[in-house]
Structures are given as structure tokens and as C-alpha cells.
Design a protein around this nucleic acid. Structure first.
Length: 319
DNA sequence: AAGACGAAAGTGGTTGA
DNA sequence: TCAACAACTTTCGTCTT
């Protein structure tokens, strides 16, 4: 964030001691009385221009903006590292080179164990999110959750990976783009029940609300995996909305519901998929789809799916 | 032959005493 | 901590297309 200065309504005198010796602290963004130290204003916003440096001569004074900070980087993306790359060392006179190397080594040693862990954890997180095609926003949220878990010492006694995986699972749900435990298990190589257990623990400890996932959140992704048309997706959402009204979804696994709804929608739009195919992408069994399917069809009236009328009974002419 | 259907037994997780 | 319980899975046989 930009530092300091030039905010609204400049004070002329200190409201506390009436001194007129007032100064702007351009580093902290405060207006301060030089006599009594009273902070007259703080959190000033800098309205002056953001300068960028285009050559080395301007270094110093004008630069304050940098890359946006990110929670997904272990140092939030704002650290300096000594001598990245090989070229730097050759800019130094030979006498100073050993000193440079010593400093570099010390910089690496100085980072604390927790910082190193954090670095490793966030690297893992990065790997998971990229393999699962998740947005940077989800990654950020997961990183935030992980940091909070670390701050509360919730990682103790648990594997770091399982906490990262759980944080990611939670973040996905928070963003309305849930992934199943199976999918996360896949990339993280951690037993499903462990992720689930850690997730519940985290959400309890961190006060993250646990809302049951909405089957609707799964529909678009499953549909695209099945190469279903937008029309089918719309249909599926309609069916789901009706099912919700009749409470046919509560207590049921959301993935199973999403799968069954898609299966029915695909039939109605003539893009028929087998139960096997739908079960595959939804990570449930065909039996589950059948059960949901049965409940839905029995309770909602699908004109299109009702038993085709028995052929009008044609009186058979008795011989 | 492949898909759909359903019964029965088993599994892991939640809940309430 | 334990038992009861619902949801889901696995397995397998039968029916339908």
C-alpha cells in the first residue's frame, strides 16, 4: 500500500497541546505533533503520483509501488533475496565476493523453521491448485486458511500436507466451486478420511461455517466433463430446483443428487449418457444414481419420462 | 452384449446417551 | 465411548434393449 501524506484537512495546531510544530511522518502516514507526540491523523493516503523507475539512476526516492502482495507466497511476495542468479556476484570487486557469499548463506540460515515450513506448504498448495485447475482466488483463500491454522498452532500433531489439503477443500467450498474429497485425495496423496477429519477440525477451530455443499455447484463441472450442452445444464438446474422444494435433496450426498439430476436432464434432452458414465465423473456408484433417480422420478412428475402409455388396448378379435 | 434395475450385505461417519 | 442409524458402496443376479 502506498505510504503517506497529503491527506485531507491539514491540521494547523495540535488539538492536545496547541503547539504549532506539526510534522508529517511520511513513512507511517501520520501527522504528528512534534512537542507532545500526539498523532493528529493517521492512515493518510498518498495521492501523489506513482513513479516507476526506468533506469538505475532514479533508484531510491521515487519508488514505493511493487508487485501486489500475495498470501500464497511464503513472504507475501515482498522479500528481497541476495544475489539471485549468477551475474550479480561478478558486479562486485573480487575482494568482496567471499563476503557476499557469506551473507547469502546467512540469509538462508536465518529464515526460521516455521518460515521454511510455510514455504514448503505453499509450494504444495500451488501444486494442488494447478493440478485441479483452480483459480488463484481459491489458492489465496486456502493460503489464508492455512496461515490462520498455523497461527493457532493447529498443525501440531497433524501432517502439514493434510492441513494444506483441508484448507484447500474448505477454500473450494467457500468459493462455490467445490471439489470432492476424492479429487483432493488424488493430488494430495492423503487418505480421504484424514482430509475429512482435519477439515472438520479446522472448520470448528477457525469458526469457518460448515454449510452443506449445494448440488448446483457441481452441475456445471460434471456437465462439462460429460460434454453435455448448455440446454441440458439448464434443464438439470430446473429439476434440481424442484427437487429442493420437495426436500428431496436434504441429507443426500450432493454429488449423488447432482449426478442423478444430470442423468435425467440428459435423457430429457436426448443426450443420453449411461449411468456408468455419469457415475464416473461424479465419483459415485451407479446404484446411488439409481436411488436418487428413483426418488426424483417418483416425486416429481416428468411427463416425458412417465411410462409410455400402454398401447390402447385394441380389442382383439376373437377368432 | 451392454446397460438398467434391484436385493442384500458391508463400510465409514454422524449422533445421542 | 459405545451403539444405533442413515447414506453410500460392493457384489451379484435378473431383466431389457
Amino acid at each position: 500500500m502506498a505510504l503517506v501524506v497529503g491527506g485531507a484537512g491539514e491540521a494547523k495546531e495540535c488539538p492536545k497541546c496547541k503547539s504549532t510544530r506539526i510534522t508529517k511522518d511520511t513513512v507511517r502516514g501520520e501527522i504528528v505533533c512534534m512537542d507532545c507526540g500526539f498523532v493528529i491523523e493517521d492512515n493518510l493516503i498518498d495521492f501523489s503520483q506513482e513513479w516507476r523507475e526506468f533506469d538505475g539512476d532514479e533508484s531510491g526516492g521515487s519508488r514505493r509501488a511493487g508487485a501486489p502482495i500475495s498470501l500464497a507466497r511464503h513472504d507475501k511476495g515482498i522479500s528481497t533475496e541476495l544475489g539471485m542468479g549468477f551475474s550479480d556476484i561478478f558486479k562486485l570487486p573480487p575482494k568482496l565476493r567471499p563476503k557476499f557469499l557469506r551473507l547469502k548463506k546467512w540469509q538462508q540460515r536465518i529464515s526460521t523453521a516455521t518460515e521454511r515450513n510455510l514455504k514448503y506448504a505453499l509450494a504444495e498448495l500451488k501444486r494442488y491448485t494447478s493440478q485441479l485447475n483452480l483459480s488463484p482466488g481459491v489458492e489465496e483463500t486456502a493460503a489464508l486458511i492455512y496461515r490462520r491454522a498455523v497461527a493457532k498452532e493447529l498443525v501440531r500433531g497433524r501432517s502439514m500436507e493434510s492441513v494444506v489439503a483441508s484448507a484447500l477443500y474448505a477454500a473450494c467450498r467457500e468459493h462455490g466451486t467445490p471439489r470432492t474429497l476424492d479429487e483432493i485425495t488424488e493430488v494430495a496423496n492423503i487418505p480421504k478420511r484424514e482430509i475429512g477429519r482435519t477439515y472438520r477440525f479446522l472448520s470448528r477451530q477457525l469458526g469457518v461455517r460448515i454449510l452443506p455443499t449445494d448440488p448446483a455447484d457441481y452441475i456445471p463441472r460434471f456437465a462439462s466433463n460429460l460434454k453435455l450442452s448448455g440446454k441440458t445444464v439448464t434443464k438439470a438446474n430446473e429439476i434440481l430446483a424442484r427437487a429442493k422444494e420437495l426436500e428431496l435433496t436434504s441429507g443426500r450426498g450432493p454429488t449423488g443428487v447432482a449426478a442423478a439430476v444430470l442423468y435425467i436432464a440428459a435423457q430429457l434432452t436426448g443426450e443420453k449418457k449411461t449411468q456408468r458414465e455419469v457415475a464416473e465423473v461424479a465419483g459415485v456408484t451407479e446404484v446411488t444414481i439409481r436411488n436418487r433417480y428413483k426418488e426424483l422420478v417418483n416425486n416429481l412428475k416428468f411427463r416425458e419420462l412417465e411410462e409410455p402409455e400402454k398401447k390402447p388396448v385394441v380389442a382383439r378379435v376373437e377368432a
